[in-house]
Lab assay of single mutants.
Amino acid sequence: DDVELRDGDWRVELKDADEEILRAVEEAIKNGASEQELRELAERLIR
């Protein structure tokens, strides 16, 4: 699993992620995405 989400800690570690993925995830976090939404976003972007 390349995506690590810690309970109560919104730092997201994406291994080997490019800047576009990181920006998309950071934007989702700023917009108040839930953990499930972040997982789905990350899975779509990593593929």
Rank of each mutant, 00 (worst) to 15 (best):
residue 1 D to N: 11
residue 1 D to E: 14
residue 1 D to P: 10
residue 1 D to Y: 12
residue 1 D to G: 10
residue 1 D to A: 12
residue 1 D to R: 10
residue 1 D to L: 12
residue 2 D to N: 14
residue 2 D to M: 11
residue 2 D to R: 10
residue 2 D to L: 13
residue 3 V to D: 11
residue 3 V to N: 14
residue 3 V to I: 13
residue 3 V to Q: 10
residue 3 V to F: 10
residue 4 E to V: 04
residue 4 E to Q: 12
residue 4 E to D: 09
residue 4 E to G: 13
residue 4 E to I: 12
residue 4 E to T: 07
residue 4 E to L: 11
residue 4 E to R: 06
residue 5 L to F: 14
residue 5 L to N: 13
residue 5 L to K: 11
residue 5 L to V: 12
residue 5 L to C: 11
residue 5 L to E: 14
residue 6 R to Q: 13
residue 6 R to T: 13
residue 6 R to L: 11
residue 6 R to D: 13
residue 6 R to H: 06
residue 6 R to V: 07
residue 6 R to I: 09
residue 7 D to M: 07
residue 7 D to H: 04
residue 7 D to F: 08
residue 7 D to E: 05
residue 7 D to L: 11
residue 7 D to R: 05
residue 7 D to C: 06
residue 7 D to P: 07
residue 7 D to I: 11
residue 8 G to V: 07
residue 8 G to P: 12
residue 8 G to I: 14
residue 8 G to R: 12
residue 8 G to Q: 06
residue 8 G to E: 12
residue 8 G to D: 07
residue 9 D to I: 05
residue 9 D to S: 07
residue 9 D to A: 08
residue 9 D to V: 03
residue 10 W to Y: 04
residue 10 W to F: 05
residue 10 W to I: 05
residue 10 W to K: 02
residue 10 W to G: 03
residue 10 W to P: 02
residue 11 R to P: 05
residue 11 R to V: 06
residue 11 R to E: 04
residue 11 R to K: 07
residue 11 R to L: 11
residue 11 R to H: 03
residue 11 R to Q: 06
residue 11 R to A: 07
residue 12 V to A: 12
residue 12 V to S: 12
residue 12 V to I: 08
residue 12 V to M: 09
residue 12 V to T: 08
residue 12 V to L: 12
residue 12 V to Q: 05
residue 13 E to N: 15
residue 13 E to G: 12
residue 13 E to Q: 09
residue 13 E to Y: 15
residue 13 E to K: 15
residue 13 E to V: 15
residue 13 E to T: 14
residue 14 L to R: 01
residue 14 L to I: 07
residue 14 L to K: 01
residue 14 L to N: 01
residue 14 L to G: 01
residue 14 L to F: 10
residue 15 K to R: 11
residue 15 K to M: 12
residue 15 K to Q: 04
residue 15 K to I: 11
residue 15 K to A: 08
residue 15 K to D: 05
residue 15 K to Y: 09
residue 16 D to N: 12
residue 16 D to G: 13
residue 16 D to M: 09
residue 16 D to C: 15
residue 16 D to T: 08
residue 16 D to K: 10
residue 17 A to W: 08
residue 17 A to G: 04
residue 17 A to M: 14
residue 17 A to P: 02
residue 17 A to D: 03
residue 17 A to Q: 07
residue 17 A to S: 05
residue 17 A to F: 14
residue 17 A to T: 05
residue 18 D to A: 07
residue 18 D to M: 03
residue 18 D to G: 14
residue 19 E to P: 15
residue 19 E to L: 06
residue 19 E to S: 07
residue 19 E to C: 12
residue 19 E to W: 13
residue 20 E to K: 10
residue 20 E to F: 15
residue 20 E to R: 14
residue 20 E to N: 13
residue 20 E to L: 12
residue 20 E to D: 10
residue 21 I to V: 10
residue 21 I to S: 03
residue 21 I to Y: 03
residue 21 I to A: 03
residue 21 I to W: 04
residue 22 L to I: 10
residue 22 L to P: 00
residue 22 L to H: 07
residue 22 L to R: 11
residue 22 L to A: 04
residue 22 L to K: 09
residue 22 L to E: 01
residue 23 R to Y: 08
residue 23 R to P: 00
residue 23 R to F: 09
residue 23 R to K: 13
residue 23 R to N: 05
residue 23 R to L: 08
residue 24 A to H: 03
residue 24 A to P: 00
residue 24 A to D: 01
residue 24 A to W: 09
residue 25 V to Y: 05
residue 25 V to F: 15
residue 25 V to M: 13
residue 25 V to R: 00
residue 26 E to G: 09
residue 26 E to L: 15
residue 26 E to V: 10
residue 26 E to K: 09
residue 26 E to M: 14
residue 26 E to F: 15
residue 26 E to T: 09
residue 26 E to Q: 05
residue 26 E to C: 08
residue 27 E to C: 09
residue 27 E to M: 12
residue 27 E to W: 13
residue 27 E to F: 12
residue 27 E to S: 08
residue 27 E to G: 04
residue 27 E to K: 06
residue 28 A to T: 00
residue 28 A to R: 01
residue 28 A to I: 01
residue 28 A to W: 05
residue 29 I to P: 00
residue 29 I to S: 13
residue 29 I to F: 14
residue 29 I to W: 15
residue 29 I to R: 05
residue 29 I to A: 12
residue 30 K to E: 05
residue 30 K to L: 09
residue 30 K to W: 09
residue 30 K to T: 03
residue 30 K to G: 05
residue 30 K to C: 03
residue 30 K to Q: 08
residue 31 N to D: 05
residue 31 N to L: 12
residue 31 N to E: 06
residue 31 N to P: 00
residue 31 N to G: 08
residue 32 G to H: 03
residue 32 G to Y: 01
residue 32 G to M: 02
residue 32 G to Q: 01
residue 33 A to R: 04
residue 33 A to I: 09
residue 33 A to D: 01
residue 33 A to S: 05
residue 33 A to M: 13
residue 33 A to G: 02
residue 33 A to E: 01
residue 33 A to T: 04
residue 33 A to P: 00
residue 33 A to Y: 14
residue 33 A to V: 09
residue 33 A to Q: 03
residue 34 S to V: 02
residue 34 S to C: 01
residue 34 S to K: 04
residue 34 S to T: 09
residue 34 S to I: 02
residue 35 E to S: 08
residue 35 E to T: 05
residue 35 E to L: 11
residue 35 E to K: 06
residue 35 E to A: 11
residue 35 E to D: 10
residue 35 E to R: 06
residue 36 Q to N: 09
residue 36 Q to Y: 13
residue 37 E to K: 03
residue 37 E to R: 02
residue 37 E to S: 03
residue 37 E to D: 04
residue 37 E to F: 08
residue 37 E to Y: 08
residue 38 L to Q: 03
residue 38 L to H: 00
residue 38 L to C: 05
residue 38 L to W: 15
residue 38 L to T: 03
residue 38 L to F: 02
residue 38 L to V: 12
residue 38 L to P: 00
residue 38 L to N: 00
residue 39 R to M: 05
residue 39 R to Q: 10
residue 39 R to I: 06
residue 39 R to V: 04
residue 40 E to M: 10
residue 40 E to N: 08
residue 40 E to K: 11
residue 40 E to I: 13
residue 40 E to Q: 13
residue 40 E to R: 12
residue 41 L to C: 00
residue 41 L to G: 00
residue 41 L to K: 00
residue 41 L to H: 00
residue 41 L to V: 01
residue 41 L to E: 00
residue 41 L to M: 06
residue 41 L to Q: 00
residue 41 L to Y: 02
residue 41 L to P: 00
residue 42 A to E: 02
residue 42 A to H: 06
residue 42 A to F: 15
residue 43 E to V: 13
residue 43 E to R: 15
residue 43 E to A: 15
residue 43 E to W: 15
residue 43 E to M: 15
residue 43 E to H: 15
residue 44 R to K: 08
residue 44 R to T: 05
residue 44 R to P: 00
residue 44 R to Y: 10
residue 44 R to M: 09
residue 44 R to Q: 07
residue 44 R to I: 02
residue 44 R to L: 06
residue 45 L to C: 02
residue 45 L to H: 02
residue 45 L to M: 06
residue 45 L to N: 01
residue 45 L to V: 03
residue 45 L to P: 01
residue 46 I to N: 03
residue 46 I to E: 01
residue 46 I to D: 02
residue 46 I to H: 04
residue 46 I to C: 03
residue 46 I to Q: 07
residue 46 I to G: 04
residue 46 I to Y: 09
residue 47 R to S: 12
residue 47 R to Y: 12
residue 47 R to E: 07
residue 47 R to T: 09
residue 47 R to I: 07
residue 47 R to G: 11
